[in-house]
Structures are given as structure tokens and as C-alpha cells.
């Protein structure tokens, strides 16, 4: 048996790309939006809410961050067994990564100099306006690259959706393998597609980080 066939690689490529766009990309984009928004809300809650709210929120986030996505997916899947897998999967990814992104925002918010808060107070700006117009815009600048690295991380976690029967690109590759009894090309191509998607993005992020750092 040949150990690599370009014919097979090209044959499997279209179905992998379709699964990549329909599942991997969609889950990453929607999951990232959920994570980015929820993470910000959590970070602000932890800074502004009274302790009896902030503490439990923190504890729940810590718990989510320290347990596997796979088991979280299964848990949610069997709890809400009427909702379709893709929807649940996207929400689980989003919430899981919100627990990481909240920490990114937190460090970004902490990095906004105290003088900025004081200046806003001196101008009699309301707390809400200070957050919206002064703190968050500055915090976002410094956190953007770090948020981006978590998005790339999420992209590579999307194959876990397979445990709740969402057919993502890697499952598609495996299915091709079980159809043809040859896994080499399909799984390798799936890996290369991930590499092609994540490596250039991380290079861009590094550049973005340098640009933001010099400013």
C-alpha cells in the first residue's frame, strides 16, 4: 500500500472544507462572540458588583475553567436533550472560553492607570460613562491579542463537539477513514487545515501585539 495518495487527499478535501466552514468556523465565530461578551460582563461584574454576587461568579468561572470541555458538553447535552447539538456546543464553548477571557479583560482593566479613573472622577463623569468611554476602550486595546490567542485555542477545541454527535471536520475525516479503511490522508488533511487556519492568525496576532505595544 502506498503511504500517501494525493488523489485521496484531493478527494477528501471538499467534504473536509465544507465541515470546516459549516461547523468549525461557525462554532468558533459564534462561540468567540459569546465568550467575548460574557467574559467582559463577568470581568466588570467582578469589579463592580457586591461581594455576594462577585464571589460566586468567580467560583463558578473557576470551576468551569478547571473541568474539561468534553465533560461539560456531555453534561449539557444530556441535560437539555431537546436542543440540537450545534447550538449547545457553541454555548458550551462560549461559556468555557468566557472563563478565560474574563481573566484577560481583568488584567487589561487592572492595567488602565489609576490616573485615568481619577481624571474621569475629576471631570464628574458617571461611573457607567467612565467604564464605557475611558476604561473599556483602553483595556480592549491591550487585551486584543490575548483574546485572539484564546479564539485560536477555541478553534482547535471545536472537534470536541463530536462527543455530542456534531459532525465537525475531524469526525468527517474519521468517517471518510471508516468508509475507505484509509485514514492517513483525511486525518492529515484535517490537521493541515487547522494549521493553515491557526498559524497565520497567530502570526498576525503577534504583529498586532507588537504594534499595540509600541504605541
Amino acid at each position: 500500500m502506498d503511504w500517501w495518495s494525493w488523489d485521496r487527499a484531493l478527494e477528501v478535501l471538499p467534504e473536509l472544507l465544507v465541515a470546516f466552514v459549516q461547523v468549525t468556523l461557525v462554532a468558533t465565530v459564534i462561540g468567540s462572540v459569546i465568550a467575548a461578551v460574557l467574559g467582559l460582563i463577568i470581568a466588570i461584574t467582578r469589579r463592580t458588583a457586591p461581594a455576594f454576587i462577585a464571589r460566586p461568579v468567580h467560583a463558578v468561572m473557576e470551576f468551569i475553567r478547571m473541568t474539561p470541555i468534553v465533560i461539560q458538553l456531555l453534561f449539557v447535552f444530556y441535560t437539555f436533550n431537546t436542543v440540537d447539538g450545534m447550538t449547545l456546543g457553541v454555548i458550551v464553548l462560549g461559556v468555557h472560553y468566557a472563563s478565560y477571557m474574563a481573566e484577560v479583560y481583568r488584567s487589561g482593566i487592572d492595567a488602565v492607570p489609576k490616573g485615568q479613573w481619577e481624571a474621569a472622577t475629576a471631570l464628574s463623569m458617571s461611573p457607567a460613562r467612565t467604564w464605557r468611554k475611558v476604561v473599556i476602550p483602553q483595556a480592549l486595546r491591550t487585551t486584543l491579542p490575548a483574546l485572539g490567542t484564546w479564539v485560536i485555542s477555541m478553534l482547535k477545541d471545536t472537534p470536541y463537539l463530536t462527543v455530542i454527535f456534531v459532525v465537525d471536520m475531524v469526525r468527517q475525516a474519521e468517517n471518510y477513514g471508516s468508509r475507505t479503511f484509509v485514514y492517513t490522508e483525511s486525518i492529515t488533511m484535517a490537521g493541515l487545515i487547522f494549521l493553515a487556519a491557526s498559524y497565520p492568525t497567530s502570526v498576525l496576532l503577534r504583529r498586532l501585539e507588537k504594534r499595540l505595544a509600541t504605541y
Binding site: D157, P159, Y160, V170, A173, L192, S202
Partner: peptide, 8 residues
């Protein structure tokens, strides 16, 4: 780093 854990 670039290829997913599950792929590996």
C-alpha cells in the same frame, strides 16, 4: 500547536 489535539 497548530494542529488540533484530537487530530494528533
Amino acid at each position: 500547536r497548530g494542529t488540533s489535539l484530537l487530530v494528533q
